[in-house]
Design a protein around this nucleic acid. Sequence first.
RNA 1: GGAGAGAUGGCUGAGUGGUCUAAGGCACCUGAUUGCUAAUCAGGCGUACGAAAUUUUCGUACCGGGGGUUCAAAUCCCCCUCUCUCCGCCA
Length: 422
Amino acid sequence: MLDIKSLRENPEAAKTKWASRGLDVDVEALLAKDVRRREIITELEQLQHTRKASSKEIGMKKKAGEDATEAMAAVRAIGDQISALEKEKAEVNEALDLELLSLPNFPHDSVPVGHSEADNPVIRTWGQPVEMDFEPKAHWELAEALGIFEFERAAAISGAGFSCLTGAAARLSRGLISFMLDLHITEHGYTEVQVPLLVNDDAMTGTGQLPKFAEELYRVPEDNLWLIPTAEVPVTNLYRDHIFDADDLPMSLTAHTPCFRREAGAAGKMTRGMNRLHQFDKVEMVKFVKPADSYAELEKLTGHAEAVLQKLGLHYRVITLCTGDVGFSSAKTYDIELWAPGQQAWLEVSSCSNFEDFQARRAKIRYRNEQGKPVMVHTLNGSGVALPRLLVAILEQGQQADGSIVIPEVLRPYMGGMEKIG
RNA sequence: GGAGAGAUGGCUGAGUGGUCUAAGGCACCUGAUUGCUAAUCAGGCGUACGAAAUUUUCGUACCGGGGGUUCAAAUCCCCCUCUCUCCGCCA
């Protein structure tokens, strides 16, 4: 959510920022509601002031044994006015909030202007495609031959878009989770947390999934809960309504969770094999930082995700999402993409974003600054990294002519010393 | 799932309809004082929003959340959430 005050002060700048996302926003209508809202508040406060004073007088009169019938009637009339105004205030607030909650963040000035993912610039590439003197296979072919992915069995119990890892793949997945968490907590300064996978409306609103993206979420109506689409939701909301001391920041948290996504409308897009699933595992990194530090922290965070891939020896590239492609809540996002030689495609495995104070304002996450005043923190998060496509890259980049898979060295301790699959 | 008890500021804890403008204590900040890891004294010490001023002042709201009764609600009533105790069930 954006600050209504900043819109009030500079409506033209806001229009321009939203226009760069391809959005035409009627800022004037929004501000008109804000003006009415403040009028109501002023009027209401005056009435409340009168009622408060008069009620006190009535109390004193009664105590003194005087008659207060007339004053009581007068205050009752004020009470009616107050009720009416409060109703209008609630309506205006609700309308204004809904609009504000539905408007995306402003892209940062350093974000390249563009219309779609075609305009996202590649800012660096690490490693090389592995030289293969044979035709590389897609991971689903490799895995089928090795008997380590069982999609049909998963489909039989849950439908399309679910996976079942068997044997070495399951162990590899578990090893990767441990490897990534260990790396982040021992070398990157994160604290590991285990969090709920089912969360309430407030949590989903805090990080921006609601009210706009309900159709992407699985829900449990009996209990009014939602399945998390990413650990970002419970981890960021750990500090909802919290005021940090300045010394607490930056705070860096990492968590492994499954993620649940309906992927409504994504049918047909790269859905083969492990590329896109309704349920997948992910290690997530979340940071709460002082506003002045947030862009430096975004670079560090992205570096932490890259470190995972570098230690695994995987060829990847980093791109900046342009204004037309950057996510709803984000001010700036780097995507990290792994090369999948069997599909001749780049697969997104990590998305590292600075939300500035957009989530913090929704979730009321603040810190006490040097003057002792509470101000919004900046929140960041990034995948560090997502499992299925990481497995895809390990399989496709590590494949040998005989169909076996070489296990990256750093993972072998997690695999009981195993050097290859197959 | 059943029964009971509770939820008040950063923490602790009083307050059962009317100067509550929420006591007291702890912690913290500022100053004074005392010759020493500190004590004592005085003062300060929440959040949000609005108005005026321009860095201060005034006002309103906030005692788990929501609604109600009343001239007036931390206080009375209803619903919800959470915590604790006991019982049941259970990995």
